[in-house]
Amino acid sequence: MVYSVLQERIMTRPFGDDGNSFKFSMFLVLCNRLVTCVLAVCCLLWVGESMKPVAPSYGYAAVSLSNVMATTCQYEALKYVTFPLQTLGKCAKMIPVMVWGSIMLQKRYKKRDYVLAVAITTGLMLFFLTGPVSSKKQNARSDAVMWGSALMLGYLGFDGFTSTFQDRLFKGYSMSAYNQMLYVNMFSAAVSFCGLVTSGQLLPALAFIRRHPEALSSIFVLSLSATVGQLFILHTIKKFGALFFAAIMTTRQFLSILVSSALFANPLSTGQWLGTAVVFVALYCKTFLGTKVKPVHPQKSPGRAPIKAGYSTKEGQGTSKEYLISSE
């Protein structure tokens, strides 16, 4: 919840008397990933695991690149559309996960999954068509909604690829969540730093923070809340299972919309509340129907380590790896 509030605060509200807003999304990604790297190192030292990479570098790099792109699209979207629309759009991540799962992992999904995907899409369209969705800065410009929607589609596509490729790493190599967390975020930090340098945003971002030191404290708390959130995520999945965790995440997204409406004056129309209800009812149905987690028995494949039990779920269902990189 802290992460959600600060995300909207940093990207949509001005700092200082000059009325300038923070515009450097990739700098936020860099800060998040650096803090998470520190957490991953501490966790590996705490549990006594080796810090050596388990998978090939290109495996970590592929997840990192898609994750950086997904997170950047998420932050950038807030410049054009409201936070409630962005949050609801993130709820539709099961659709690209299903698409990528069919392509990359040859997964087969049940009719129920397709029905729920259609229900979520219907709720999103209802929200989109029955009330204002552009950010206040854009003054209801139609092109702003178009750009924001395009960025959210980019987020969903890249995020779906990230989740699916994480699944491949867990299934193909015997690695812990902390190992993947360290190297994926290490590569992500490098990618976001290179992006800042090549786009010429690094120095302006540092200059903005120098002029508005309160922005740095908000960015640090944002990064810390996302990072600490990962510890709660891992503990919840380990202790209570993916079902309970999915219910928590769905509730968190709904509460984020309520908080945004209260704190940042983002009132929703009756139709938008109805669309929100359709989306979250569908998500809860997805959570509580067909939810048994099946541990995967170790299997051997040539040149690879056995699969660790506990990292996969029932065929066609999202696995807990979807939330290992960040709580975003």
Rank of each mutant, 00 (worst) to 15 (best):
M1I: 12
V2E: 08
S4D: 09
Q7Y: 01
E8Y: 01
P14M: 00
F15G: 09
F15W: 00
D18H: 01
N20H: 09
F22V: 01
K23C: 07
F24P: 04
F24G: 05
L28F: 02
T36C: 13
V38S: 08
V38Y: 11
A40L: 03
A40V: 05
V41P: 08
C43M: 15
L45G: 05
G48V: 11
G48D: 03
E49T: 11
S50K: 09
S50C: 08
K52Q: 13
P53C: 06
V54N: 06
V54S: 03
P56T: 06
S57A: 15
Y58H: 13
T71K: 05
C73A: 13
C73I: 10
Y75V: 03
A77K: 03
Y80R: 10
T87N: 07
G89C: 02
M94V: 12
M94E: 09
P96D: 08
G101W: 11
Q106M: 13
K107P: 10
K110D: 14
A117D: 07
I120C: 05
L126T: 15
V133C: 10
S135M: 01
S135T: 08
K136I: 07
K137V: 01
A140L: 12
R141W: 00
R141Q: 10
A144N: 05
S149R: 04
A150T: 08
L156I: 02
Q166V: 01
L169T: 09
Y173V: 10
S174E: 12
M175N: 13
Y178E: 14
Y178H: 13
N179P: 03
Q180A: 15
Q180E: 15
M181K: 02
L182R: 04
V184Q: 12
M186N: 09
M186C: 15
A190G: 14
V191M: 11
V191F: 15
Q201P: 04
Q201F: 03
A205F: 01
F208W: 07
R211W: 07
R211L: 09
L216W: 04
S218G: 05
L222T: 08
L224F: 15
S225W: 06
A226S: 12
V228T: 09
V228L: 15
V228E: 06
G229C: 07
L231M: 14
L231G: 13
I233P: 00
T236S: 13
I237G: 04
K239Q: 12
G241R: 06
I248M: 08
M249H: 13
T250L: 07
F254K: 06
F254Y: 06
S256P: 08
L258M: 11
F264A: 01
L268Y: 01
L268E: 02
L274F: 12
G275T: 06
A282N: 00
F288Q: 00
F288R: 00
V293Y: 05
K294S: 05
S301P: 01
S301K: 10
R304W: 04
A305T: 15
P306F: 00
A309R: 11
T313R: 10
K314E: 13
K314D: 12
G318H: 11
S320E: 04
K321P: 01
L324F: 14
E328F: 15
